[in-house]
Structure formats: structure tokens, C-alpha cells
């Protein structure tokens, strides 16, 4: 593919609009592109990468950070200290096993050929067993480390849950129950940290919305309905939202509600109420 053609279809390439074969041809052409030509494509990539900057920012759950770091920790190569410890352990095992070996006495020539072969076989078996034990030892050490990391991760998760429970029962936390309207079985609990002015909302039994709709949470004040979040629920009808109340919502906050809106949300509520609560 010529550079002229690559340049012409670059805007389509960077947003993934090309069919597989053409995209493959572009990539092949880019392998031999000059640095200047590479920069032209890079610039188009940057245009494409700005598209998601327009999206309403969503916050992933806090526990994902911990999970990521745990996964990375498992992938970390052994440090020089760990390697030294493991080598030292293997040496100890070797020395211990060496002590268990009976002194080998050179047989006299007069002894039978069978006895000599038996000794050779026994030695080979011993060597094989030692090598196997070394390998097993190293494997067990790795498993022990993995279990140790897993235990630490669980401890941290438990501590996090403990903190969550403390937050829930704290006098500064106010609990608001949202009840289903359009979907009567749906319900939600809002845990309002009245010091940090943060909401943690746990939604239950709210059916996953149709593909061209989203749910939208609103702060309802005396003067306005302010969009709080656009969200979807999973196949069990659940989701968790964590929000910080903006100052304009705090002034005169009277209620909160969830409506079904066109995909991406609406500037003002247009759909039916699925959850609501007075405050």
C-alpha cells in the first residue's frame, strides 16, 4: 500500500473503521514508514484518543486498585534477595540429603558385575531423587509465596470491609432507602457520609435496562433536577455507585430519583421513575 493511500485512510484507520484486511495492509505499510510518516499517523491516533475525553467520567470501584496491584505483585520477577534465599534453601537441602547418603566404597574387582551395575543404578536413582526433591522444594516455595500474597490480599479486603461497616454504623452516616416505582421489586440504599458529602448507593433488583436506554440518578432540589450519574445494572439487577455531592445539589436537596433515559442520559428527566426517595 502506498503512503498516499495510507495517509488518505488514516482517519478511518485510527478509529477502527477499516475492514480487517485493509487495516492489516496499513499496519504492514507502517512498519516501513519514515519517522515523519509515523508522526502523521500518531497525530491522527491522538485525535481518536480525544473522543473519550467527552464522556461523562465514571469512577471504578476502589477495590480494583488493590486487585490490580496484587496481580502485578504476582507477576514481579524475583528480586536478587529472593533468589539468594531460594539458592541458600536448596543448598541446605542438598547438604542434608548428602548426609543421608551412605559412604560409597569402591567395590573390589572380585565382586560380581551384577553388584557393580546395582550400585550404578542406585547412584543414578539417588541423583534423580535429589534433583526431583530440589524441584519440588522450589515449587513449594513458590506456592507458599503465592498463598502468602493471597492471604495478605484477603486480610486487606477484610479490613476494607471492616472500614465499610464502621462507615455504615457511624453517626455521621445517614441511610436513605430508595423504593421501586416502575419496577416495584427494585430497591436501593444510599449511605450518605454527611461529613465528606459522599454517597455510596447499593442498587438491588433493578432490571438491566434495554440496550438503547440507561438509568439516570437525579438530585432533586427545590429549584432543579441535577444529573448525578448515568448507569446500568448487571444481570442480577445490581450495581454500586459512589458519588460526591456537588454544592448546588446540597443546597435544598429534597429527594433523589432514578429514571430510565435514552442511552447516555438526558439533560433533564424524561422517562418513568424506577426508584425514588424523599430526603
Amino acid at each position: 500500500m502506498t503512503w498516499k493511500k495510507v495517509k488518505a485512510i488514516a482517519p478511518l484507520y485510527v478509529i477502527g473503521a477499516l475492514d480487517e484486511k485493509t487495516a492489516h495492509d496499513v499496519e504492514a505499510a507502517l512498519h516501513s514508514a519514515t519517522p515523519e510518516q509515523q508522526r502523521v499517523i500518531a497525530r491522527w491516533r491522538e485525535v481518536a484518543a480525544l473522543l473519550p475525553q467527552a464522556l461523562p467520567l465514571q469512577t471504578p470501584p476502589d477495590y480494583l486498585r488493590e486487585r490490580l496491584l496484587n496481580r502485578i505483585a504476582e507477576e514481579l520477577p524475583q528480586t536478587p534477595i529472593e533468589i539468594a534465599v531460594e539458592e541458600s534453601t536448596l543448598k541446605e537441602v542438598a547438604e542434608r540429603d548428602e548426609k543421608k547418603v551412605l559412604p560409597f566404597v569402591q567395590p573390589r574387582r572380585a565382586e560380581s558385575r551384577t553388584a557393580r551395575w546395582l550400585l550404578i543404578a542406585a547412584t543414578a536413582l539417588l541423583a534423580f531423587t535429589s534433583a526431583y526433591l530440589f524441584t519440588q522444594r522450589a515449587k513449594l516455595a513458590r506456592e507458599r509465596d503465592n498463598l502468602s500474597r493471597e492471604r495478605n490480599s484477603l486480610r486487606e479486603e477484610l479490613a476494607e470491609r471492616g472500614r465499610l461497616v464502621e462507615d455504615i454504623v457511624s453517626p455521621r452516616t445517614r441511610v436513605i432507602a430508595m423504593v421501586g416505582d416502575e419496577a416495584p421489586q427494585a430497591n436501593a440504599k444510599v449511605f450518605w457520609d454527611t461529613e465528606a458529602q459522599q454517597w455510596a448507593i447499593y442498587v438491588f433488583d433493578l432490571p438491566a435496562p434495554p440496550s438503547d436506554n440507561d438509568y439516570q440518578l437525579w438530585y432533586v432540589t427545590k429549584n432543579a433536577k441535577i444529573s448525578a450519574a448515568v448507569f446500568r445494572t448487571d444481570e442480577r439487577g445490581r450495581t454500586v455507585l459512589k458519588l460526591t455531592l456537588p454544592p448546588d445539589a446540597l443546597a435544598g436537596l429534597a429527594a433523589t430519583a432514578v429514571t430510565l433515559e435514552p442511552r447516555g442520559g438526558s439533560p433533564q428527566p424524561t422517562g418513568k421513575f424506577y426508584l425514588k426517595a424523599s430526603i
Binding site: 461523562p56 467520567l57 438491566a208 440496550s211 458519588l243 442511552r263 447516555g264
Partner: peptide, 27 residues
């Protein structure tokens, strides 16, 4: 599959999510 989007005209007028403390003015 069950969640695949049909309507995608949302970027230009999508409402902002509630701002978190760490969300900068620059963003």
C-alpha cells in the same frame, strides 16, 4: 451481546457524572 449498544448519539450532549474530589478543573 445482550448489552451491545444501538444508539450512540450521546457524546456531545451526555450529562457529566457527579464530580469527584480528584476530578481536576483541567479535565
Amino acid at each position: 451481546d445482550q448489552h451491545r449498544k444501538e444508539s450512540l448519539d450521546v457524546l456531545g450532549d451526555a450529562p457529566a457524572n457527579a464530580a469527584s474530589p480528584e476530578e481536576s478543573a483541567a479535565a
